[in-house]
Simulated assay, not measured.
Amino acid sequence: MKFDWNTVEMTTSQQKIAEYVERNLQTVLLSTEQELADTLSLSIASISRFWRSTGFKNMKDFKKKTTQEMTPTPAKKIETILSQSSEAEGLSKNFHTVMNHLEFTAKQFSEETLNEAAQLVSQSNKVYIYAQGSSVGLQDLLYFRLARYGLSLHKMVHSGSELLEDMIHLKKEDVVILLAFGRKVLPEEAVIFSEAKKVGYKVIAVTDQLVSSISDQADITLFGSRGEPWEFHSMVAPTLMIEMLIIAISSYEKETNLNQLDKLHELRKQYKDILPRS
Rank of each mutant, 00 (worst) to 15 (best):
E87C: 11
I168F: 09
M59T: 05
K172W: 01
K57G: 02
T54G: 00
D216V: 13
Q34P: 04
P74I: 04
K76Q: 15
V176T: 11
Q84C: 05
M99G: 00
L141C: 07
K63Y: 04
A205Y: 03
D219N: 15
A218M: 07
Y143Q: 13
S213V: 11
N125C: 00
S215C: 12
R145I: 00
F104P: 00
F3M: 05
M167K: 03
G200Q: 09
Q217D: 12
L275G: 03
E19Q: 15
V191M: 13
S122F: 10
Q260D: 06
E116S: 12
A75D: 07
H265G: 03
D219H: 15
D262R: 13
L210M: 11
Q26I: 10
D219A: 14
E22A: 08
H158L: 05
E253W: 07
E69S: 01
R148C: 06
S43C: 05
L102S: 03
A45Y: 03
S194F: 04
G137H: 14
E103K: 04
N115Q: 15
A205H: 01
V8Y: 09
T67P: 00
M10S: 01
T97V: 01
T27Y: 10
K197V: 12
I242G: 02
S234H: 08
N125V: 00
L240S: 05
Y149L: 12
V157L: 15
R226L: 04
T66D: 04
R23S: 13
E228I: 02
E162F: 12
T39Y: 00
E89L: 10
A190I: 05
T207Y: 11
S43K: 09
I129M: 01
F109G: 04
N259H: 10
S122I: 07
Y271G: 03
Q15V: 00
E116H: 13
E103F: 15
R268V: 06
N115P: 01
K60Q: 11
V121R: 06
A218P: 08
Q14V: 00
I177V: 15
T71Q: 13
S159I: 10
Q15E: 07
V8R: 12
K197E: 15
L29W: 04
A205W: 02
I242A: 03
Q15N: 05
Q84Y: 03
G227M: 01
L245H: 01
S92Y: 12
I247D: 14
E69W: 00
E87G: 03
H101D: 07
W230E: 13
V211M: 02
S225H: 06
M59I: 07
S213G: 08
S85A: 06
T12A: 11
L102H: 07
I81E: 09
V136M: 09
P187S: 12
A88P: 01
E111G: 09
T39V: 05
Q139K: 09
S86N: 06
E165S: 12
V121C: 13
T11E: 03
Q108H: 06
T256R: 14
T11I: 03
S250K: 13
F232L: 10
S85N: 10
T256Q: 14
A75E: 11
S251Y: 13
L164N: 15
E266D: 11
A147I: 02
L261F: 06
E116T: 14
S92Q: 08
S161L: 13
A218E: 09
V185R: 07
L36Y: 06
E188G: 05
K198F: 05
F232S: 12
G227L: 02
E33S: 09
L30S: 12
A106I: 02
L245E: 00
T39L: 01
L36R: 06
